[in-house]
């Protein structure tokens, strides 16, 4: 673990302005009445979701309810069976150029080193070699991987690979950032560091973010809004909670905030029923 990540933990004192930016911003991602099906299996049905520019939305829901499926549809990897998706007012048809996607699975190219993986997006955009190498070095340093530039993915730990993936997804400065359980592979300590790091990066340069997580605390600590999906199949959005906690936040400290605990209780009351339903269907 490099010191580069640790540096972010003590947040600079800044005037707290709850919900400063997103409220009057334009809509960036718009999911209208989307139904996703695999053959006759309807995974999600009639999902409506709008993400404003600069807004950080967390999606939680029981396992297998269709969270990754929705993210894949926004990314243009899957086509909705019905309904439509637009990004920046343009309908999504296939893969867009302005998206960063942090996959749930390992998605690094195993035959490229950390630095080569990081600069991939810039290379595909035909940036000159010197420029992209420099940017990639800076990004690897940002995610705390200075000194690991020339390691292949198989020579990195699971958490280190996730961080390379994050640098790889963010280096192109996408308008929309999709993250599928970005921190679930990390231990609690590294997770806090990475969450704070993500918040710091996002605070510097606000983008529309959709983050999927199993961890309700994480959803609340990071998000402007927490969206709850029902248990699958035919999963849909059952509720959406605004998180009116001040920013910038420190994920470890904010969990002790009484207002955070109120929110947690409310949202958990809503999520709990769905989680229990999904377990009942197991057998």
């Amino acid at each position: 673990m490099s010191a580069a990540v640790v540096r972010a933990v003590p947040q600079p004192p800044m005037p707290a302005s709850p919900q400063a930016q997103p409220s009057q911003a334009k809509s960036m991602v718009s999911v209208d009445n989307v139904t996703m099906a695999f053959g006759s299996f309807v995974a999600v049905q009639d999902v409506n979701l709008t993400i404003k520019d600069g807004e950080f939305v967390s999606i939680v829901g029981p396992t297998g309810c269709g969270k990754s499926t929705i993210l894949n549809a926004i990314a243009g990897l899957l086509q909705p069976a019905s309904g439509s998706i637009t990004i920046d007012a343009k309908p999504v048809k296939g893969i867009q150029g302005n998206i960063g996607y942090l996959f749930q699975q390992d998605a690094l190219l195993p035959w490229k080193t950390a630095i080569e993986n990081t600069e991939l997006g810039l290379m595909f955009r035909r940036e000159p070699a010197g420029v992209r190498r420099e940017k990639a070095m800076a990004w690897l340093a940002k995610v705390g991987l200075r000194g690991f530039e020339h390691r292949y993915p198989h020579q990195l730990s699971g958490g280190q690979r996730k961080r390379v993936q994050m640098a790889q997804a963010l280096i192109t400065e996408p308008q929309v950032i999709l993250m599928d359980e970005p921190f679930s592979a990390l231990d609690i300590h590294t997770r806090h560091l990475m969450q704070n790091e993500l918040l710091r990066l996002w605070q510097e340069d606000r983008r529309a973010v959709v983050m999927i997580t199993h961890d309700l605390e994480e959803a609340i600590a990071l998000g402007d809004r927490v969206v709850i999906l029902s248990a699958g199949p035919r999963s849909h959005i059952i509720e959406s909670f605004d998180v009116d906690l001040s920013r910038p936040r420190d994920v470890a400290e904010i969990k002790l905030d009484p207002h955070f605990m109120d929110l947690y209780r409310n949202i958990w009351a809503s999520l709990r029923g769905e989680v229990e339903k999904s377990y009942e269907r197991r057998d």
Binding site: A75, L77, I95, G97, I99, G100, Y101, F103, Q105, D106, A107, L108, L109, P110, K112, L120, G121, F124, R125, Q168, A169, T172
Partner: peptide, 21 residues
């Protein structure tokens, strides 16, 4: 397929995919 999707989202065209994936 995940590696392939990742490369496509990062902006790879057909020739890039052939060469790098």
């Amino acid at each position: 397929p995940v590696v392939l999707s990742n490369a496509r989202i990062l902006g790879a065209n057909r020739r890039d995919l052939l060469r790098h994936v």
